[in-house]
């Protein structure tokens, strides 16, 4: 690797580090705003996802990674969603007011 490439790469990592630290300040600042619960949760998770994406794309070199790695990660992401849906779905009647349980209760046919 040439000196110029090395220096350019180092600069890119330091810029990313600066962005990650700035986003950490944003995360903490948001928690002091006392917004209602739903936007607070949505914003906090959005900022965390942005930080995770920066780490993955730049530090983990996912930008320009091999297709097999993408495939593995897409499959993992799908399975995590399935995990959440199954677990939260088990208590859906109480959590989201769905009526799945009614189908199994006794009553006139």
């Amino acid at each position: 690797m040439s000196d110029a490439t090395y220096q350019a790469e180092t600069r890119a990592y330091l810029t990313t580090l600066g962005a990650l630290l700035a986003l950490t300040v944003v995360t903490v600042a948001l928690s002091y705003l006392d917004l209602p619960t739903a936007p607070t949760v949505a914003l906090a998770l959005a900022v965390a996802s942005l930080k995770a994406a920066l780490v993955a794309a730049v530090f983990m070199h996912l930008k320009g990674e091999h297709a097999l790695v993408y495939g593995t990660l897409v499959l993992t992401a799908v399975l995590v969603v399935v995990l959440f849906v199954l677990l939260l779905g088990a208590d859906a009647d109480r959590l989201f007011g769905t009526g799945f349980g009614d189908a199994f209760s006794e009553g006139p046919r």
Binding site: M1, T10, Y13, L17, L20, T24, V28, S31, V55, F59
Partner: peptide, 29 residues
């Protein structure tokens, strides 16, 4: 929250230093 914020900064900086270590190895330094 202050201690956790400190730990967040520490871990993010160490994530940057390990990728800088990789760049240094690749450059033969």
């Amino acid at each position: 929250v202050p201690l956790a914020t400190l730990n967040t900064v520490i871990l993010i900086v160490s994530s940057a230093t390990i990728v800088l270590a990789l760049a240094a190895v690749r450059a033969g330094r």
